[in-house]
Structure formats: C-alpha cells, structure tokens
C-alpha cells in the first residue's frame, strides 16, 4: 500500500535523458508546462504529446511505471472530467435524464484529461530520471539569482534534499513498524474512523521517536563535518551543460514555437 507512493522515486539508468544536466531537465519541464497550457487544440496538444513520448522512449522508463504513478491522481482526473463533460454549454450530442453531453464538452474533457496526464507524466519523468541530489543541485543553481533578494536558496535546497532523501527511509520504517505491530495483533483495517485513527498510535509514536532521533543524528553528523550553510561552500561535482543539453533546450523552444504557431492558426 505504502509502496505505491512513487513520487520522488528515482530509477537509475544510463540513457540520454538520465545524463542530461538537471537544469536542462528542469527548464524542459517548465517549457513543457507552458506549451501544455498554451496548447488548446488537437494538433498542438499532439505535438507536446509526441515530444513526451519521444522523451519516455529515450529514457527507457516503462510506461507502466508512469501509469502507476498516476493512480493516486485518478480522483482529480475523474472529477475534472465529469465537471467538464456535463457542464459545458454547446451543441448537444447526447442526453439522458438531467445530464447533457455537448460536443464542446466532449472535446474539452478529452483535451483536459490528456493535459493533466501529460503534465503529470512529465514531472514523473523528471523525478524518475534525475536523482534527488541532482535535482536539488539543479534547482539551487537555477534559483541562485534570488539570493540577491536574500531568499535562502541554499537552505531551501538543503532542506529539500534532506526531505527527499528521507521519504523512502520513512516509508520503509513505517512499513516495518506496521508489520511489527501487526505481529502483535494490531488491526489497521477494521473498525470505524475513530478506531482506525487510534489503531495508528502504535505506529505513529515509534515513527516520530525514530524520525526525531534520525534528525538529531543527522544534525550532529553535519556539524561534525563543519557544515555551516551555503556561504563559501564548493562542490565536488559542479554541474556542466554539454552539447546535448543545448540541443535539448533548443528543441523544446522549437516545440513551444510550434505550439504557438499551431494555436494561431487554430488547427
């Protein structure tokens, strides 16, 4: 059950997509988002979709892994789909009881679902192919200009990488503690809401205790290694853009232009 949470999970690999600079990938995701929100017709959405399919194919990520990540979002997708399907005015093509489906509604629904799907796939592709460390490194580099405005970029990036680093650990730990309490006859599946909430106590207490202990240990370990914030810190691995990165960015800009043009011509 907890294993289904795949956000922030990284599938190691050695493909073109894996090797790209994290900044390239982050910018690509932003460009992809802009393109998706600009695209409002079949052809332009198809262009974005094709680009993503190409990226997925290059990354060798199994489409099934992407679909699995979509599962928790199914509710939102269905909800927006239903709203769009039944509450759009226009040319009626089907009608039963109080529901009315218009051709505009149908078109909008399909585009909307497609759009959500592409948005999410794109973010998943980013986290699946980029290690959390690289991701935060890239983010820190990209947000660097904000430092001038006294925005704590480094601290934020450090917090994010620690959080990302510990999500799998905490999930694993939760699993372990739940198993241990189940072995003592704890029952998490039956009973009303109150009972179930109370049944979680034997899991939450040890989990918090260990999370605090871990935080404490981590803080000590960081201090022992003279961590003192971002000032004057150098990196072991500096990020470097290569030809592939420049080409990827150019390609995405091309896609974006293409989408804008297609939108203009209303195809």
């Amino acid at each position: 059950m907890l294993k289904d949470i795949t956000l922030g999970q990284y599938f190691p690999g050695d493909t073109l997509v894996h090797r790209l600079d994290p900044r390239t990938k982050l910018i690509s995701v932003v460009l992809d988002f802009i393109a998706l929100f600009t695209a409002n017709n079949w052809l332009s959405t198809a262009v974005v979709a094709l680009t993503l399919i190409l990226a997925v194919a290059l990354s060798r990520i199994k489409p099934r892994a992407l679909l699995k990540g979509m599962k928790p979002l199914m509710f939102i997708v269905v909800f927006t789909a239903v709203l769009n399907l039944f509450y759009t005015e226009g040319h009626v093509i089907a009608q039963f009881w109080i529901f009315r489906i218009t051709s505009e509604g149908l078109r909008r629904t399909i585009l909307m679902v497609l759009r959500i799907f592409l948005l999410v796939s794109c973010t998943f592709l980013l986290t699946y192919t980029t290690s959390p460390l690289q991701l935060t490194d890239g983010l820190e580099q990209l947000l660097r200009p904000l430092k001038k405005l006294r925005f704590p970029v480094h601290e934020l990036a450090m917090m994010m990488s620690i959080a990302l680093r510990f999500i799998p650990t905490l999930i694993e730990e939760t699993d372990k503690i739940m198993s241990a309490q189940k072995a003592r006859g704890a029952d998490f599946e039956t009973g009303g809401l109150m009972r179930r909430a109370r049944a979680l106590l034997p899991v939450l207490v040890p989990l918090f205790v260990s999370a605090l202990r871990r935080a404490d240990e981590l803080a000590t370990a960081m201090e022992c290694r003279c961590y003192h914030g971002g000032e004057g810190r150098t990196r072991m691995k500096t990020l470097q853009m290569h030809t592939a990165d420049h080409l990827t960015l150019l390609f995405w800009i091309g896609v974006l232009c293409c989408v804008i043009v297609l939108k203009r011509f209303g195809l």
Partner: peptide, 17 residues
C-alpha cells in the same frame, strides 16, 4: 495465526510505544 506464531522483529526496541 498472528497470535499463534509470535514474531519478534530485528531491533524490536524501536516498536515500543
């Protein structure tokens, strides 16, 4: 069966609550 087969996990001290 959970009551008939008692399982003590590795490092069980972390499950006390």
């Amino acid at each position: 069966i959970r009551f008939r087969v008692g399982l003590v996990f590795q490092y069980p001290e972390y499950q006390l609550f």
